[in-house]
Structures are given as C-alpha cells and as structure tokens.
Nucleic acid binder design. Structure first.
Lengths: 115, 115
DNA sequence: TGCCGCTACCTCGTAATCCAAGGTAGATGC
DNA sequence: GCATCTACCTTGGATTACGAGGTAGCGGCA
C-alpha cells in the first residue's frame, strides 16, 4: 500500500512547525501553504483545511505571523501570511523540540540504531 | 540529556509503537515498559501511566498483546505483556508509518535527525 | 502498632487538535 | 442560471495524552 498520506494522531502538534517552516521561504496564502507542505513532504503530509486555518489564526494571534488581505486577479481575495521575528523564534523552538522527539523515537524504536 | 521531556501533542499516536517496540525484546510488565521507553529514548520520551495503561488494554483487546498476571517476590503482582504474531504485524505497520511520517517531516521542515 | 515510601496496577476528567463535512463568496465557462 | 474552481472559514465528533486520585503489598522506622 505504499505512499498513503499520513493521517490521524501522528500529525498532532506538527502543524505550527510545518506552517512556520514553509513560511520561511516568504509570503504565502493559506491555500498555498497547504499545497507547499504537501509538495515538500513528497505527498506524505497533507494537513486538512480544518486544522490548517485554526493553526494560522492561532499563530497570528500569538504574534508569530503577520497577515494581510489582498485581492486576486482571478478568484476570491487571499490572506497572505508572513513570519515575524517572534515567529522565527517559535520556529526554532519547534524545530528543536521536533529534533529531540525524532531522536528519542529513533533510539526507542531502534529500527536502525547503532547499538 | 533530560533537559526537557517531550510532552503533549507530539506523542499522540506513538504510544502503541513504543510499547510494541520495547516488547520486541521479550516479556515486560507495564511499569517496566514505561521505564524501558524512558531509558531507550535517553529520557526524551516518557509516556505517563494515564496514557500507557489504556494503550496496553487497547492493544490487548486488539489481540496485539497477550497478558498474564504473576506474583512478585516483593511488591504487588505484575501483569506481564508479550507481543503476539498479530502484534508483530501491527508493529511493522506502525514502524512503516512512522518512517514515512519522519521522512516527510524531514523533507518539509528540512531538519534531519536520523537515517 | 502506626506511618511513610516505594512499587504496581487502574480510572476519571480535562485539554488539545485532527479530520470530514459543510458554508460563503468571486471568477469563469456553458 | 448553474456548475466548477479557487479560497476562506466554522462546526461537531473522535482520538488520546496528561494530571490527579485510588487500591494494594511490602519493608523500614519509631
């Protein structure tokens, strides 16, 4: 069954990290963030809108993101998100936490451990 | 290490994988499983009893674990858990899912921890 | 005897947050 | 008008981690 999307509990807590991480590239709007995450993860990760938009609002409320409405030539207006200095700090924290977690999992599960 | 245990949402969905993984070594009882996970992860992961015991019961109900009460020389009796063939299959699935998730995260975030 | 601390099991309520499904709305094509 | 695509947003149900509390046996200590 190969390349199914990851769904369910594993994604919990990673949405802010994914959002902040893709926004490091520059400004993006919500719909585009979802596509970018899916692309960059090779299709493995695809946070749904029901979790993406609340996460964006939460990050904006925390001051980690700065947002702005802009009209589009075609289609509805878009809300562009940009990472703030505070967001960069938060990203660093999330990255460190993910790294620690990932290393801990690798050791505990040990499918490929050195010892 | 032990600077900070991973807590909260990141652990979601990983408890069955961790339990099955440490039980690959052989029979263990619940309290011991928790200690083993903590040791093997270098202190990074420490599922609490409030999540460990429900997970054990759930895995046993699914037929992934086989359990047996035994008296102890000192202290209360212990419930020893052993992994079943079905549990081994489930472990393989969880490992594959974790691997896919971990790789997807590494690609999306750009922070590699293992492999 | 009584109390405390350790091991070892279990359950409950709260909190987080994911997902599916549905809703609003503009632009385009038939 | 109606369907379709983009793009935003909300709601309700489900999963599950955690803290706090409970039951119990054993040993140490006064």
């Amino acid at each position: 069954m190969g390349a199914g999307k990851i769904r369910g509990q594993l994604l919990k807590g990673t949405t802010p990290l994914l959002v902040l991480s893709v926004l490091r590239e520059g400004e993006l709007y919500g719909y585009e963030i979802a596509q970018r995450v899916r692309e960059r993860s090779g299709g493995a990760l695809a946070p749904s809108e029901g979790s993406l938009y609340p996460a964006l609002h939460s990050l904006e409320a925390d001051g980690a993101l700065q947002a702005e409405w802009r009209d589009s030539d075609k289609g509805p207006r878009r809300r562009y998100y940009r990472i703030t200095p505070k967001g960069s700090g938060l990203l660093a924290e999330h990255e460190a936490e993910w790294a620690a977690f990932s290393v801990g999992m690798a050791r505990a599960v040990g499918t490929r451990a050195n010892g």
